[in-house]
Design a protein around this nucleic acid. Sequence first.
DNA 1: CATTTTATTTAACTTATATTAAGTTATTCT
DNA 2: AGAATAACTTAATATAAGTTAAATAAAATG
Lengths: 250, 250
Amino acid sequence: MALLDTVVMRSLSIQGALSSEDKALLMGLELSPRHISASEVLWEEGAEADLFCVLKEGWAYSYRNLKNGSKQILKFYLPGDIIGMRDFGFTRRLSSAEMINRGVIYPLSYQQLFELFGRSSLAVGIMATAIRQQALLSERLIYLGQYAAHEQLAHFLYEIYLRLKRIEAVEDNSFIMPLTQQLISDALGMSPVHVSRTFSMLREEGLVFRDRHHVKLPDPEALARLVEFNDSYIDELLPPMFTEFLRASP
Amino acid sequence: MALLDTVVMRSLSIQGALSSEDKALLMGLELSPRHISASEVLWEEGAEADLFCVLKEGWAYSYRNLKNGSKQILKFYLPGDIIGMRDFGFTRRLSSAEMINRGVIYPLSYQQLFELFGRSSLAVGIMATAIRQQALLSERLIYLGQYAAHEQLAHFLYEIYLRLKRIEAVEDNSFIMPLTQQLISDALGMSPVHVSRTFSMLREEGLVFRDRHHVKLPDPEALARLVEFNDSYIDELLPPMFTEFLRASP
DNA sequence: CATTTTATTTAACTTATATTAAGTTATTCT
DNA sequence: AGAATAACTTAATATAAGTTAAATAAAATG
């Protein structure tokens, strides 16, 4: 029932777009409220991702702890929001979640979510695709908020490198990147001039060589260490739990 | 077939998680490649959102034009990525999309996506929820990248205000916000000292009054104008096309 | 109630990045 | 090929925001 109190579902219901079958499914979910105290941690980054929560009362937030000791908050959750969907389709949590004040949540397992998806692997796959996009966006947000220009650029380049490698567009640590510094500056929110300066800095350190659209990262792992790159959000494999479940479907 | 070339779907297929029924569905999609030239605009912010594209060749990006004349790029798309999922569940595009170099795309209508979802309104609702989260994140990213501290904070407060109004937690333009300045600084990526300074600035301009957890926005619309707030991404209503289609389902 | 802790404000100083402008190098066009 | 345009680099200056630290105010604790 709690899922019906959720922002989008409530309006779906009001708009008359929920079939009786859908409603039956929602009613059939066995959900029990859990009272939860202020500052209680719902989960930590890196923990197994197996459930999400409908927030009924209280405020919560998701965040990442950063190497420099600060944290970046990704989102504040208010009553009616769903916490933990961000990790659906990943094996481990990409961010931690914590209550702010005390409140009430309804935990829901990913298994139960599968059922709502009608056990359709296509629906799950599309959902996972959307969530992966969100993960990329979150990482960019973290770098925008908290890191210096050279770290932002290094992170950006390493992400592009990984994504290109995945589609076999990297050879000998080199790739074609058809972007102007203007475009890069629009993505990273810094001035084009500073993008140029920052490329020079990375070149002097021997980390990045660039000639127009040709980019070479002589030691990609060194770049990754510089930005403490956690590549789990790039990974395209769905967790074993997902594929086992989907294979077992009728 | 193009959807099978997509990053997540390909791995789903490799992991053996696609039923023969799913594969038949994918095969049954009538997709025709479209060659597309460099700098071609796929769609503009505000246009009707009715399809997405599987990017087969070339690079593209999505972005928002900002009032100050700059643009914020939200994402670069590489071959195998899906462009335009960000808007699924909204009536209009929240961001523009443009090719960088020339390439090939496979357009796919949201109607076709419905079919893949097995016409389940629950799956669509959950997907729409996830996408709305992403929209919030995108807006935050835009403000982080491009705006001054007082605009960021104003935008943040106005968003909270709207979200609270939706759940009837605003009375007389006032609400309870159980956040410390430390938490706000962690969300906006600025120092706690500067959050305090910025609150003082907004107070002097008569826009925001705050006493601990009590916040009053005497003139919310003035705040909205300051940040050129586009509230379409907050809206929880699904487009008419969605609900009509879902109501018509068996 | 007094004490400690936590949150906020204010001020002085520092720094990273923006801005402007001028110079250089590539690329495109005729 | 030569001219025009776009992309990039370098340097000087300006400014918003960071940092540190000390003062005040509120909340939590015993």
